[in-house]
């Protein structure tokens, strides 16, 4: 069993206890001083950490209150929507584009992914895995749409209109000739290996390169 994520890195102290595991991995793997676009940046907690790492971090966020919080903490965050606003960003403007837990709620996920890799040299993409065994269990034996820690909202309220699995995503990027540079699989806040991830991992995070 892999060790739980190390939440005590000095660079991020003060935020660590709350930072989502996929964001913690991203924060660790973005190179110091890079240009980063965080799509769906929330109130900017990852951007704050990246800024402390000397990165030029910019964000897009759909929720007004989150945007206000982020701007009030001095971050460059624009109220906008991954589906409609990425088109305005120039090619190659960033070293990394980040899309955390947002792909499954995009209206046109393939377009969003194409924009991410047009704007950024690399992209971090994380999403909940719909083939996780608890999800399968709920659907196969309960006959109900799953409500799990990773998918906490009922079918009628969820923003997740394009549910996908880890294997779906692997096939999706392979079809598009996109290179997977790295991948991390998580259940709760624990990492697990790639073996059997499509069944055993609740979340996945991929680092993609054009």
């Amino acid at each position: 069993m892999p060790a739980p994520l190390d939440f005590a890195r000095d660079e991020r102290n003060g935020y660590m206890s709350e930072l989502r595991p996929d964001l913690a991995i991203i924060a660790d793997h973005v190179k110091r001083g890079s240009r980063v676009l965080d799509v769906g940046c929330g109130d900017g907690e990852l951007m704050d950490i990246l800024r402390a790492k000397g990165c030029d971090a910019r964000g897009i966020e759909i929720d007004r209150d989150n945007v206000s919080l982020a701007v009030a903490r001095g971050l460059s965050v624009v109220q906008g929507d991954a589906d409609t606003d990425l088109v305005n960003y120039p090619d190659d403007a960033y070293d990394y584009a980040i899309l955390s837990q947002t792909l499954q709620s995009a209206r046109v996920p393939d377009k969003v992914l194409a924009d991410l890799l047009r704007i950024g040299q690399r992209a971090f993409v994380s999403f909940p895995n719909f083939a996780y065994w608890r999800v399968r269990w709920s659907l196969a034996w309960g006959g109900r749409m799953p409500v799990t820690p990773a998918l906490p909202v009922s079918w009628y309220e969820t923003q997740n209109i394009h549910q996908l699995t880890i294997d779906d995503f692997r096939a999706f990027v392979a079809e598009r000739g996109v290179t997977v540079e790295n991948a991390w699989f998580l259940t709760g806040d624990r990492r697990r290996g790639a073996a059997g991830a499509n069944l055993l991992a609740e979340h996945a995070l991929f680092l993609l390169k054009r």
Partner: peptide, 11 residues
């Protein structure tokens, strides 16, 4: 954004 400027925006 197209000009690559650092910009914040909120409605």
């Amino acid at each position: 954004n197209a000009a690559g400027a650092a910009v914040s925006f909120v409605e």
